[in-house]
Amino acid sequence: MREDHHDQPHAPDHPMTEFEWRVDAVQALLIEKGVITADEVRRAVEEMDARTPAQGARVVARAWVDPAFKARLLADAKATIAEIGITVGFDATIVAVENTEKVHHAVVCTLCSCYPRGLLGYPPDWYKSLNYRSRAVVEPRSVLSEFGLELRSDVEVRVLDSTADMRYLVIPVRPAGTEGMSEEELADLVTRDSMIGVAQARTPALR
């Protein structure tokens, strides 16, 4: 087996771009020099692919049904997330914040793209976009309304600006009419965007 990516079933359907050639070249050289192995790269991709918002949704659903868990989550998110078998890797500190009928949190990273990747997976494109990063901190209501989220004027909006060392998980408001639902059913209502704070959790009718 060859040591670079050519043993991978990922032949591009387009002429290779400069970026793609350089990724291949950097990887090949780092392998030649013994810094990384092809296997480690493959495993790192697989590991990241396995991290999806479903993990965060499990955490939120547990917090909705278990007040003691929620209290621990708000006090020490990383340790509490580990309780239900999710390890968030070597990511920075994670801080969980709770949305209520009175306070709504939304998360941005104005400087880069910091995101609780270990919990939610890769950040979406718009989260990394210059316009979201610019505007979320100065006109959050108008940004939220672009996402289809209109908040009452008496709801306080708090925007959390992430750093490489501190990343945020929003616990959205538990929707009305979900009293009898199981934890698994509840987790289905928890979208990625609701954990970033640009949306509410789904209501059961829209599930």
Partner: peptide, 22 residues
């Protein structure tokens, strides 16, 4: 804000993976 999203390409994922490993 452009809300369209794309699935990361194999090269993008590998760039992410290489950085994470380093």
């Amino acid at each position: 804000i452009d809300k369209s999203e794309h699935d990361l390409s194999w090269w993008e994922k590998r760039t992410d993976a290489i950085a994470s490993l380093l």
